[in-house]
Design a protein around this nucleic acid. Structure first.
Lengths: 216, 216
DNA sequence: ATCAAGTCTGTAACTTGTTCTAGATTAGCG
DNA sequence: CGCTAATCTAGAACAAGTTACAGACTTGAT
């Protein structure tokens, strides 16, 4: 499945091309953000501290990322790219599409467990984001969709399959939140993921679907 | 299905019984909260304004609700009780359990559409809540579960059914967020709800499930 | 090399959630 | 009624996100 370059193109809004120093600043900021987040989660990412850690004035930080939520969502985009790359190297081994998706998400989940504070910061920012961050959040969503479709081994999904993927993403985000806020165990998240992934089986060609009103 | 009184018991932590004046204050605060939220959503619920609107000192507000998120989650509990009562009066008419659940959730969704700002405030608070609010958020979750099980017409759900309900709740919350932040249309939310509700069909006695690894 | 436009820095100010304090008020009790 | 503990009020104070601004530094074009 050859689809490497496409990601990088859509990743940046690419409005004005950044100079080298600017690219370096941006990278320092994202690094500081991830670092602080890894320590104490959402609350520990304080804009003044991010600015100081990344050797940038507060005003500059806000020029690069117009709010804390923007910053953390961008941090998530960054991490997601890593993740997608990593996952691509070792594709999931399951037989059915739903097994492979569940395996992929559980692998991502285990990665998040290694940095729970970072996960907290990123996921909280994602769900707290208001309309002003929609484009960036959408980008994260597209990236996530791409990862799931990859795991399914699809290049040209049907509408029903896209719906299933949407629901899987919903479940993934919400399950993460319940885990992060201590209301669900790791085992519980696993069950939820496995449960929702069975939706995929319903969309397979041979599956008998006794349904109506599944418009567009 | 006789299960009326139970809700009220678990609804309040019932630590110290409130005096009449205190109950009145609590009610004024919740009312002011809902009112402000209906105007401008999460951001419009400012603690100083809530205090003023409800004729209570700021310190008192914080004594009743230890944070803005606590306040909004309590507001949501309040609204949910209304909702559950309303829904109970006109049970959904669908033939299958999944149809009835989808109908119920869509009805709730339409109610939220009438007060989108209030919905914004409540849902944002719910997903932004950290561990310190877990008990309250859990209470909301239980109430939501009860509504869904009601719609299914179940009193004694199987583990598989509970899993399905959990996933439905995940989808419900997350779909609401995408709608509130303008990243999904009302139609899209409808599709997502209908899609996830088909999971219920998989848990019915006669359903053929070609699955493995569905532990406990 | 020089100039204009755009960036970056350092710092103060403003906003809103949260905490703290000192002095009234209220509730329960003898 | 009169006392004591708890509660409530008004207002200041603090914390962190965000904005504003004046002056220094870069950049790109000439």
């Amino acid at each position: 499945m050859p689809a490497e370059a496409k990601v990088d193109i859509s990743a940046r809004p690419a409005s004005p091309p950044l100079t080298e120093r600017q690219e370096a600043r941006r990278r320092r900021i994202l690094h500081a953000s991830a670092q602080l987040a890894s320590r104490g989660g959402f609350d520990a990412v304080q804009m003044r501290e991010v600015a100081e850690s990344s050797q940038v004035a507060l005003g500059t930080l806000y020029r690069y990322f117009p709010s804390k939520v923007h910053l953390l969502v961008a941090t998530m985009q960054d991490q997601l790219e890593h993740m997608h790359g990593t996952l691509r190297k070792k594709p999931p081994a399951g037989e059915t599409a739903s097994e492979r998706v569940a395996e992929t998400l559980m692998r991502a989940f285990r990665a998040l467990q290694r940095e729970p504070h970072l996960a907290d910061a990123m996921v909280r920012a994602l769900t707290f984001a208001d309309r002003s961050v929609s484009p960036e959040v959408d980008q994260v969503s597209r990236q996530t969709t791409a990862i799931i479709l990859d795991a399914m081994g699809l290049t040209d999904p049907s509408p029903a399959q896209l719906s299933a993927v949407r629901v899987i993403e919903h479940t993934w985000h919400s399950a993460l939140i319940t885990w992060l806020s201590g209301r669900a165990s790791i085992a519980q998240v696993k069950i939820d993921i496995e449960t929702v992934c069975r939706l995929i089986d319903l969309t397979e060609p041979g599956a008998a679907q006794g349904n109506k009103s599944q418009g567009r």
